[in-house]
Design a protein around this nucleic acid. Structure first.
Lengths: 187, 187
DNA sequence: GCCGGCTATATCGGGCCGATATCGACGTCC
DNA sequence: GGACGTCGATATCGGCCCGATATAGCCGGC
């Protein structure tokens, strides 16, 4: 998902500065499934303004750059509606942890267990943030759907890692940990 | 995870051409959690060779570029071991579908249902490929772990989407669909 | 007074990728 | 036999993304 579309989406919810857009993406309801940096947000805002999809109202600040509050233009709102109607790209999941675990036989059992424990802690922290989000403020229909989806994935990951953290370092081959398949060699 | 590390990992399993590396990443056991294109694989292989971490044996081909079969050098094997020992970055999940669903109130109920059905089909196809992989060939310990992890996430996504596809277009707020929380408005 | 965090504006160089180019081998279809 | 599409193979390039960096005032804690 390109960063211009992300910016349009955030601005569809209301005017915001570049810094606020980053905070909403990073800490807001989107945080579990999109990401964007200042290095791409500011250039995208410039391009969107040049294309007439957004406009900026500036507030002068003493001794620092003017504050720019961006909002959608009617063309921007229309462009965003068009983005919403498209078939979305495939969801992407990327994991350096799983890449390392692909070479589990090159790691010692303690190293493996440490990596699983570390990733379990990461997922537990992520889930705690989700629960806090769910319980601390009213959410829209779409936000509830997205948070629920994300929680499904995160709780499934926790269950899987938890079952493997308790085992010494022998992974099971399927999501049902009780079922065991004899491990072979690859390639 | 940078593409040089991915190439080192694939070559740790055995020598391969650039084209084979791409196929293994795209269709092999890694496909559910890493990705790389020709646009990054070939430059990465050049850099790795320049750094002495891999070497290439060429086989001349008639009327086309020489076939280059890459393999790790001892320094490359050492560098890869070091990569395996590092703390991995956070797992990343990216979803244009969820981004669109964040604006569910701007979509009609039929459009919402169509998007959920489309994504459900995508996840079912992905799961079918995982099951085929699990049952069609012996897998190493690490491959079993990674496939099991991926299947956990994919089956959780299927369960969540399935429960929402059956409902008219009223999402539940949590992974347990029976629990319902009153939806509010955001920002 | 110093320090760290927050709120703000940005840029830049390096890495990534989709599209593109090239080309022979092979199998299918007409 | 020719056309066509796919496969196996080598790459490059322009545009996008991002982490690091720069600048700087406000605020609260020590």
């Amino acid at each position: 998902m390109d960063v211009k579309a992300l910016c349009l989406g955030v601005l569809a919810k209301g005017p915001a500065t570049g810094y606020e857009i980053k905070k909403l993406i990073q800490d807001g309801p989107y945080q579990h499934f999109i990401e964007a940096s200042f290095g791409s947000i500011y250039p995208s805002l410039s391009r969107l303004a040049a294309e007439g999809l957004i406009e900026a109202r500036t507030e002068p600040l003493e001794g620092r750059p003017d504050k720019k509050i961006y909002s959608l233009t009617p063309q921007g709102r229309e462009a965003f509606r068009s983005i919403l109607s498209r078939d979305p790209p495939e969801d992407k999941f990327r994991s350096g942890f799983l890449f390392q675990m692909m070479f589990a036989d090159a790691l010692g059992p303690e190293e493996k267990t440490a990596k699983i424990e570390g990733k379990l802690a990461e997922y537990r922290a992520r889930h705690a943030r989700m629960v806090e989000k769910r319980t601390s403020q009213p959410l829209s229909e779409g936000e509830l759907f997205c948070l629920g989806f994300g929680e499904s994935l995160v709780t499934a990951a926790i269950a899987y890692l938890d079952s493997h953290a308790r085992r010494s370092a022998a992974p099971a081959p399927s999501p049902a940990p009780a079922r065991r398949v004899r491990a072979g060699t690859a390639r």
